[in-house]
Design a binder for these strands. Structure first.
Lengths: 216, 216
DNA sequence: TGCAAGGTCAACCTTTGGGTGGACCCTGGC
DNA sequence: GCCAGGGTCCACCCAAAGGTTGACCTTGCA
């Protein structure tokens, strides 16, 4: 193991986690952390500057999401390889990250050995998807994709709006809202709006952070 | 700063985060990491063994929650001082942790300087609550506490049950379910079950992990 | 003893939500 | 030119949810 070290960029907004990753990777041999970033925009800057072989990236980042970062970088550097490292395990997040071009999806509970093994595997040009994640992804297949409009309506449902309010918000009639709801309920495999709301949050279709902080 | 170092126990299930914390604290002077634990049960064992001055603890832990750990340890060692360190910022989590006896509540986005400052402050016998957390806590005051039964009903709502199903589940009549719902809607300050469900998740009253993974 | 709070239930009413079937329009692809 | 898919809308129906009032019982506390 004395060849060129694998050059790694670490993108993670939580300071202690980033420090932990860097500390872990620094002691592994055959690896070299060439840069760090704490948000999406900085990630792109650092990537351009260092051209790392592997980018370790969190999904939820300030300024620009992890998925957006992956997509943008891959447009200019198709050979870039990404390992997503996150606490979130919603089907939707996993799907979008892999769709964007990530080669591996790890949860933060993993050990350093697993992380380093994943880096080597991805660097060798292969994918590395842990069984638990593969399982979650498999559950998603067969699920029909929501249309843009259905997504809009679902978002309003999660925000607690009534059909009438959704109609006003989206500038359509209440009848149309009902049409979309019927369609979206069957696509999500649920039977009412409350189940739709919790399923949307659980699967990561509608991020919880988008909820306005209500009071009173 | 050559007096006795502050003896710290780190309790955190995510491996990389724990490593990060230990790495951060090890370089700070006046501090000494005397133990680590990856779950609640181990946390208690480690506490008894090392009797640390400060315990840095995550809330969501395998086997035994952070709040439970704090409560149990404080029963046998009332002088124990806890700093909660978590990614979750639901009002309910903050409230319960402080209620259980935590002296500080930090979010993982904080810097190492903030963390170390918090440790020194708490070790000196004072509290350390960042403004953002204090704000969240303040929003909670005036909110009426749910009764046990209202909580049960709310939990079922979040799980997507209809009033009739809830009645069967809790062995009460549908009329009673409605009574509880009416009461709980007004306490939560929302106007229908869907809003109640998302509010419950957002505030951490009902943990998202409790949701069964539905499919089809 | 009395009272408040919580839990239980009922009757009644209004509004909302979900199910079905059909209609029209537009757009993009074959 | 036709068709499929998506978006829009309507009418009709029934079930579910929410609002209100009042009642009874138990427990615990003043």
């Amino acid at each position: 193991m004395t060849a060129e070290p694998i050059r790694v960029l670490v993108v993670e907004d939580h300071h202690v986690v980033r420090q932990g990753l860097v500390a872990l990777l620094s002691v592994a041999d055959g690896l070299e952390v060439v840069g760090q970033a704490a948000d999406g925009v900085e990630a792109i800057t650092q990537f351009r500057k260092h051209q790392p072989a592997i980018t370790l990236i969190d999904l939820r980042l300030p300024r620009l999401s992890g998925v957006d970062v992956i997509e943008r970088i891959r447009m200019e550097s198709p050979g870039a390889r990404f390992i997503v490292l996150t606490t979130y395990d919603g089907d939707e997040d996993i799907y979008r990250a892999l769709q964007a071009g990530a080669r591996s999806y790890l949860l933060k509970g993993m050990t350093s050995e697993e992380l380093i093994a994943a880096i080597r595997t991805v660097h060798a040009g292969r994918q590395h998807i842990p069984p638990a994640v593969a399982q979650r992804l498999a559950e998603r297949v067969g699920t029909e994709e929501l249309t843009q409009r259905e997504f809009d309506v679902l978002e309003q449902i999660v925000h607690g709006k009534s059909n009438k309010e959704i109609a006003v918000e989206l500038l359509i009639s209440e009848a149309t809202v009902k049409t979309h709801i019927n369609s979206l309920l069957s696509k999500l495999g649920v039977s009412d709006r409350t189940q739709a709301a919790t399923a949307a949050i659980q699967r990561g279709i509608i991020p919880l952070e988008s909820l306005p902080r209500q009071r009173q």
